[in-house]
Design a protein around this nucleic acid. Sequence first.
DNA 1: AGGGCAACCTGGGGGC
DNA 2: TGCCCCCAGGTTGCCC
Length: 283
Amino acid sequence: MPELPEVEVVRAGIDRHVLGRTVAQVDVHESRSVRRHGPGAEDFVARVRGMHIVSIERRGKFMWLHDGSQALVIHLGMSGQVLVNTGRTEPGRHTRITMKFLRPSTTLSFDDQRMFGGMQVDQLLAASDGRVVPQCVAHIAPDPFEATFDMAAVTTTIRRRRASVKSLLLNQEIVSGIGNIYADEALWRARVHWRTPGDEISVRKVRELLTRAREVMAEALAQGGTSFDALYVNVNGQSGYFSRSLNAYGQDGEPCARCGSQIVREPFANRSSYRCPRCQRGS
DNA sequence: AGGGCAACCTGGGGGC
DNA sequence: TGCCCCCAGGTTGCCC
């Protein structure tokens, strides 16, 4: 469940089940899922066991459980899930890490087919915007829902760059939380061609793009996120409903909801971009 | 400095 | 049936 709305659905689910509780047991079934934890899997387990969770926070697609002095950072990558009380007696095929809480008994299961995601324990420090975040998240820019999100500064940054506006929207060091789906949806709503260089877009249009990105992610969050299959689910294993509201992403061959032209799919950085060839011209 | 691209992974689907 | 190629909601690091 990888973009901001899907990660927020998971964050809220974890919050509901483990806020204020203490980790009783941790098991790492696949050490590659903690490869970003420098000191290794044993150290990871030793640090997480006994953690008392005082908050569960998020910036962009990163989330972390906070105990007042250190953070357990979770990134879902392309295929990560956090499931609460699966009822399984044995780890599932893609279960990489499990965490147990007692009285009442609660199990968090981290499942991740492709293993681009993972966990690490990290120290907390003040990021450039003043917010206290894990060290490994310090380079990630505020997302559009944060109080420190600076629309004017982000607009200036985008308009100084020569790269395609889509790669800039996906650059988590400029604005975080936006991925391939919501970049295409924001571009469709703002009627901008994904390949337009950042420095060729007006201030007004860049601001509209960022506003649309925030808007579409808020709508998706209200629908429980976007799920195309069982890979993207909330902590109870349920899918979100926003896929039925998509206007561009994955809609190649379908009529544009605005003008009726067929949405096209175009190669972009080893993946795909979708746009309306009529509404989103330019470049 | 900034932009492009391969690498990291597994598995599902389509074509032959 | 099987195999091979393509595709997938992300991030990082290396090369130019």
